[in-house]
């Protein structure tokens, strides 16, 4: 009997120590890991959206809390006025899972500046063509007050041939970002002003 108790106690103590060590490591290095993910994963997309080196933009980040999920929003300033926002959006319903997009919004001209794909797991040659500029170019200059839609659904976006599921996921992601800006613009601008 005492042997069983000893086994349980020893294993529990070891597991407890391990959990404590891992928590410490995670708390200590978490912010650094986030910064690295920003630099290497979101950085390239932001560079193309803002036409600026990633290092200049990465510091301009606010995180908006929506139902417990933090949505990162990056911005640029022009004459101390927020000119462009880049909002991370999830394109639900991709063929190989959700797409992670970055939607660029010009607040002064009230137009979209384009979308960038941060990460995806679509089929190479079909859905993966979402990274090609030919498809994403269609977003440039679209108004921000009307939702985007595929031509099949009566909108202006030509889907990638053979990959309408992926195209629709990109459209959904954009619309969620547009809704997000419409509903929370004041909150975003307030957070930026407080920095």
């Amino acid at each position: 009997m005492s042997e069983i108790i000893r086994m349980v106690v020893v294993l529990s103590v070891i597991a407890g120590f391990s959990a404590a060590a891992l928590t410490t490591a995670n708390i200590q290095l978490g912010p650094r890991v986030d910064a690295q993910i920003d630099l290497y994963v979101r950085g390239p997309a932001l560079e193309r959206l803002f036409h600026k080196p990633a290092k200049d933009v990465l510091g301009n980040k606010v995180v908006i809390d929506v139902d417990g999920v933090g949505i990162p929003v990056f911005y640029t300033l022009q004459d101390k006025v927020v000119s462009t926002l880049a909002i991370e959006a999830i394109g639900k319903g991709g063929f190989g899972g959700d797409l992670k997009l970055m939607v660029g919004i010009d607040l002064i001209k009230e137009r979209q500046t384009g979308i960038e794909v941060v990460s995806h797991s679509e089929t190479p040659g079909l859905g993966a063509r979402i990274v090609e500029i030919a498809f994403r170019r269609q977003w440039q200059g679209l108004p921000i007050d009307t939702p985007v839609a595929l031509t099949a659904d009566g909108g202006a976006i030509d889907a990638i041939s053979g990959a309408s599921t992926t195209s629709r996921a990109a459209v959904n992601g954009t619309n969620s970002a547009l809704d997000f800006v419409r509903e929370r613009k004041a909150e975003i601008l307030k957070l930026i002003a407080e920095r």
Binding site: L11, A15, S18, L22, A25, N26, L29, V33, Q36, I37
Partner: peptide, 17 residues
């Protein structure tokens, strides 16, 4: 358990640096 803890720490370290 011991090995898994160390590996997770290595993983966090690698992601950070």
């Amino acid at each position: 358990v011991v090995i898994a803890t160390l590996v997770s720490i290595v993983e966090i370290l690698m992601k950070a640096f």
